[in-house]
Amino acid sequence: MLSRVADSIYWMSRYIERAENLARFIDVTFNLMLDMPANSNEPWQPLIQASGDHERFAEEYGRATQENVLKFLTFDESYPNSILRCLYSARENARSIREVISSEMWEQLNLFYHNVRNAAQAKDQILDSPIEFFQEIKLASHLFKGITDSTMSRGEGWNFSRLGRLLERADKTSRILDVKYYILLPNVSDVGTPTDDLQWQAVLRSVSGIEMFRQKYHGITPQRVVQFLLTDRQFPRAIHYAIVQAERAVHNIAGTPLDTYRSSAERRLGMLRSEFSFAEVQQIINNGLHEFIDELQQKLNDIDDAIHETFIEMRPVTTTEEVAAGQTQSQG
């Protein structure tokens, strides 16, 4: 597969997953807000914090009001990680690889983008009653993934698409956990109260995981939720699951057996996977969940770099050709 094409598939999927997760972020905040005491101030601030782009936001918007945050994260055309821009980028990537994806995938993504773009024309209406809108974004993303999985051959392209989606998901699930962490931080006394329980429920709902969680753990405790989102092997939005599947995708692409490596992408993913396979949640919490998540995000970035270096980067032409070219020039 052409390196450029692989890169575009990878990013197409990443951007769609990113847009979906932004919708989830916003959704969890709405849910948290509704359950919070009326006097809590700036419930939207943690969202900006978790986006990693809080400086930019402060500069351009100032206060983290609901309206400002939604405008920034959803419709800001100059902010590369807004939902609108994510979908624009996903679609531009898809446009450059239409010959390798199914036409159904393209049509769904195209429609998805046009719908959000049209919504951007009617911002105020959307911002008045946003919950349904963000619900639709999630569904459109699910539909895209469903179409991808039911129309694309399980070859390199599909594996690159999965890889992009899963790495993005691992990163974003960690940030959703972080949102709760930021809200929790000033209210340590809330731990174990009904408010706390409601908040953890909201976190689970935002990753569509409340039912799966309850079947496994029944009652909610912070430690169980963290365990579920970090280390569950079966829940598709859990970080461990995402990393295991991403590792498989990389090995499928190169044909390298699992538990061995031929590239830095395989090696780094394997190391992170084994870290998760043997992780103790209580220990992570004792050492600081936020610090753990920070490190995780850095490792995911390093894996992204390694994938780029392994599969995508335009390798220089071998020296024999350069020597030959030099000779021709000196003769001419």
């Binding site: 597969m1 052409l2 390196s3 450029r4 094409v5 692989a6 690889i97 239409r98 010959e99 390798v100 036409s103 390199e156 692409i253 599969f311 995508i312 335009m314 390798r315 032409v317 071998t318 024999t320 050709e321």
Partner: peptide, 25 residues
């Protein structure tokens, strides 16, 4: 897409040892 062949840009191709190659994964 209809022919099931690769769509390439100039930057995907390179001339090396007297042949044209494309850069793949």
């Amino acid at each position: 897409q209809q022919m099931g062949v690769d769509l390439v840009e100039g930057r995907d191709l390179v001339v090396k040892d007297g042949f044209v190659f494309m850069r793949t994964t």
